[in-house]
Design a protein around this nucleic acid. Structure first.
Lengths: 113, 113
DNA sequence: CAATCGTATACCCATATTGATATGTAAAGA
DNA sequence: TCTTTACATATCAATATGGGTATACGATTG
């Protein structure tokens, strides 16, 4: 069995840095494929394929405008990621680091004896 | 060129559901490899390899305890993910959805004429 | 020292990937 | 209608993957 498809879920889709860049650009407003090509300095077919992946996980939506296709962000698709990682956000807060330090010290003292 | 390595960064490491499960378990406290094997119902070599990936991105740390190896969470490694996705968190808030709806309506009216 | 336990690593396989390039297609313009 | 524009898709190559299984290795135990 191979690695999960990038279209499997938002986690996989967003693992690719280029796709995160695309989303970052779209966060600033709708964009045409060509606009993305120029902004990201990527080949057009690559942009199209990245957009396809993002579409399949629901992170972007398309709208036809003549012979252009306008993509826009659909940030809700990122919510599962946010929900998951937020559960860890507390754990690296400073106060927890301090606590962790204390606990480490206690452990080391135990090891020492 | 193939897909980026899972060890390239936290985003890639965490794209695998099994690795997220491992982190979720470790969020509850340190665990031995065997404990993870039993909790996750995965083959031991697979757990070991997943742990290796998580180690390489700094998401877990190991401690030797006799012939066992105790893994613990290092949540700081997930901070880049949280930082990135938090930028989108506002965008799916209800009030923004409402605003978005209004904007869509306006756009459609324009298209109609 | 031999046997066993707890982990890590090596190997094989099937698969999905990204980049590059070429080609197909629908819309707009001459 | 022919051409150009704007995208999407197909194909090829190289590669990293995760699962399965076998095996190697260090620590503990007898």
């Amino acid at each position: 069995m191979a690695r999960a498809a990038t279209t499997a879920d938002a986690f996989n889709a967003v693992a690719e840095p280029r796709r995160r860049e695309i989303l970052d650009v779209l966060a600033g407003g709708e964009r045409t494929v060509n606009e993305l090509v120029q902004l990201l300095e990527l080949a057009q077919p690559h942009v199209s394929r990245h957009l396809r992946v993002l579409r399949e996980v629901g992170a972007v939506e398309v709208r036809d405008a003549g012979r252009q296709r306008v993509y826009r962000l659909q940030p809700r698709a990122l919510k599962p990621i946010h929900d998951w990682v937020s559960g860890y956000a507390d754990l690296w807060a400073e106060r927890f680091d301090l606590l962790e330090g204390v606990l480490d010290d206690l452990r080391n003292q135990d090891d020492g004896h």
